[in-house]
Design a binder for these strands. Structure first.
Length: 275
DNA sequence: AACAAGACCTGCATGC
DNA sequence: TGCATGCAGGTCTTGT
């Protein structure tokens, strides 16, 4: 499910809804997701207040008082929903936090590709899952030259390079396709050939598509929900993603939007407009 | 070292 | 109706 805009949307809504609340009870409802839940997780976080909500790439970081943080990844199908603390636990809800205002935070993830870890604040920066991540694309320092440098010498496709979290952090299949369309760059182009003006255009396209998607609450194809249960609606603004066979919104070409497979994932693009 | 392919899981749409 | 197939927002591991 979630790429950077979906995680950022969830982060913002959680910040408004649960910042400062105390965890009265925490429960895991199975022993693992993609990886095991940390040992004694519930015991170690019970009684603590939620001190900050942050995001790095597609990871949500829930800082708790006392110098520890939950590191959460939502995989493909994960959501975080807030509901009443006395409600029945829904199917596929694997982790719950009962708060001091009679509400419950539910982590629901049918495919269980997500994960939760518990990390001391001073160990976060060197955590194995965060250590190797590339730059945040919405940071001011991310620009054409910085992007070109990350892509320098890469023989792989620009599509595959942008999907690689070590190069740019937080992009996934949807927003890579959409950014390449906005920048007029073919997904098949060699990553290392994206330099100069092209890299400038791509950096701007990445920033704007992410910002637009965050403004729209992310994209709900199937699973993504805001913590309130509301849908995101950026899917209505896709130019190419999931639009195989439809006319290209940017030109009058006859072929329309094509779908190819790169690295086992669908890529959508306009062969005329993207070079 | 870089890159592609396979594995991990469930649910849903499609077609026979 | 039932069953098989393929596909889905991501990463991690394995093999070339």
């Amino acid at each position: 499910m979630p790429e950077l805009p979906e995680v950022e949307t969830i982060r913002r809504h959680l910040e408004a809804a649960v910042l400062g609340r105390r965890i009265l009870a925490a429960r895991t409802h199975r022993r693992d997701l993609r990886r095991p839940f940390p040992a004694k997780l519930a015991t170690r976080i019970t009684g603590r207040r939620i001190a900050a909500l942050e995001r790095r790439a597609k990871y949500l970081i829930v800082r708790l008082e006392g110098g520890i943080a939950l590191l959460v990844h939502l995989g493909m199908s994960g959501r975080i929903l807030i509901g009443p603390a006395d409600a029945r636990v829904e199917p596929h809800v694997h982790f719950t936090l009962d708060l001091d205002d009679e509400r419950r935070v539910n982590l629901q993830d049918p495919r269980r590709f997500g994960m939760v870890d518990l990390v001391p604040d001073d160990k976060l920066a060197e955590h194995p899952l965060l250590r190797g991540l590339g730059p945040e694309p919405l940071a001011p320092a991310f620009n054409g030259p910085a992007l070109a440098k990350m892509l320098e010498g890469r023989g792989t496709s620009i599509k595959a390079a942008l999907m690689d979290q070590r190069r740019v952090a937080g992009l996934g299949n949807i927003y890579v396709c959409e950014a390449l369309f906005r920048a007029g760059i073919s997904p098949k182009r060699k990553a290392g050939s994206v330099t100069g003006d092209r890299a400038d255009r791509l950096a701007v396209a990445i920033k704007t598509v992410l910002a637009d998607a965050i403004d729209a609450g992310g994209s709900t194809l199937r699973d993504h929900r805001l913590p309130s249960g509301e849908l995101g609606y950026f899917q209505h603004h896709f130019a190419v993603y999931d639009h195989e066979g439809e006319p290209c919104p940017g030109c009058d070409c006859k072929t329309g939007i094509k779908r190819i497979v790169q690295g086992g994932r669908s890529t959508f693009y306009c062969a005329k407009r993207q070079k």
